[in-house]
Nucleic acid binder design. Structure first.
Lengths: 104, 104
DNA sequence: AAAAGTGGTAACCTAAAAGTGACTAATGGC
DNA sequence: GCCATTAGTCACTTTTAGGTTACCACTTTT
C-alpha cells in the first residue's frame, strides 16, 4: 500500500523533476518554435548565466527532452532542438496552465 | 515579442511551481483518496517534518490546490482536502508521466 | 497535578541550486 | 602579433529550500 503510493508518486514526480529546474520551461519554450544555438538561447533568456544554461541543457538532454548536435567548426557551433517527447509534453503543460484560468 | 514569451512562459512555469516543492506531489497524492487531518498526512509521509508540512500545506492552499477547514475544538482539528483545481490537475500529471513511457 | 492529544510556531543549521567573473581552444581578419 | 568569435569550464560566493529541536495553547483524562 505504502509502496504503491511511493511508486505512483515517483512516476509523476520524476516527470515533474524533468521540467522543475528554474529555467527548464523557459528553455523549452525558446526551443518550441525553432532549433537554437547556445548563444541564441542565451540572448533570449537574458537573466540566465552561461553556467546554468549549460547545466540545464545537459539535464534536458540527459532526460530526453532536447537533442544536441555539435558541428566540427571553428568557432564552434552547437544546435539544440526539442525531441518528440519534448514536443509532446508542451501541450499538456499548456493545458495545466489553462486549468488555473478555469478552462477545464 | 520578448514580453509575450515571458508571459506565456510564466503562465506555465507558475503552474509548475505550484507543484514543484519537494513534497507537494506527495501531499496531493495523499489527499487524492480522502480528506485528511494534519496528523494523518504526517503519519502517511513519515519523512516530512511538521514545519515543512505546514509550509507546503500553506503554499498549496494559497495556490488554490487544497482547502483547509479548521474546527473550533479542543484538541484542535483541521481537515485538508483537494479543491476542484487540485482534482483536475492530477489526471494531467498522470498523462505527463505516461508520456515518458511512450504512451502518447 | 501531570500527562496526553493536536496543530502548529520560532530559532537555528545544512545542503543544494543558482549566480559571478575570469579563463580556454582554435580559427579568421586586420 | 592581437583581437573577435563561440561554447563552454573552473573556482568561488550567495541564495533558497529543507531539516532539527524545542516549545506553545487549550482541554480532557488519569
Amino acid at each position: 500500500m505504502a509502496k504503491k503510493i511511493d511508486t505512483n508518486d515517483c512516476a509523476v514526480s520524476a516527470t515533474i523533476d524533468l521540467i522543475g529546474g528554474r529555467w527548464k520551461l523557459t528553455i523549452l519554450h525558446v526551443l518550441l518554435r525553432h532549433d537554437r544555438r547556445f548563444g541564441e538561447i542565451l540572448v533570449r533568456i537574458p537573466a540566465i548565466s552561461r553556467k546554468v544554461l549549460t547545466q540545464q541543457l545537459r539535464a534536458l538532454e540527459a532526460d530526453g527532452l532536447i537533442s544536441r548536435k555539435q558541428y566540427k567548426e571553428r568557432p564552434p557551433r552547437v544546435a539544440y532542438a526539442l525531441t518528440d517527447f519534448g514536443h509532446n509534453l508542451c501541450p499538456l503543460l499548456a493545458r495545466m496552465a489553462a486549468l488555473r484560468n478555469g478552462v477545464g
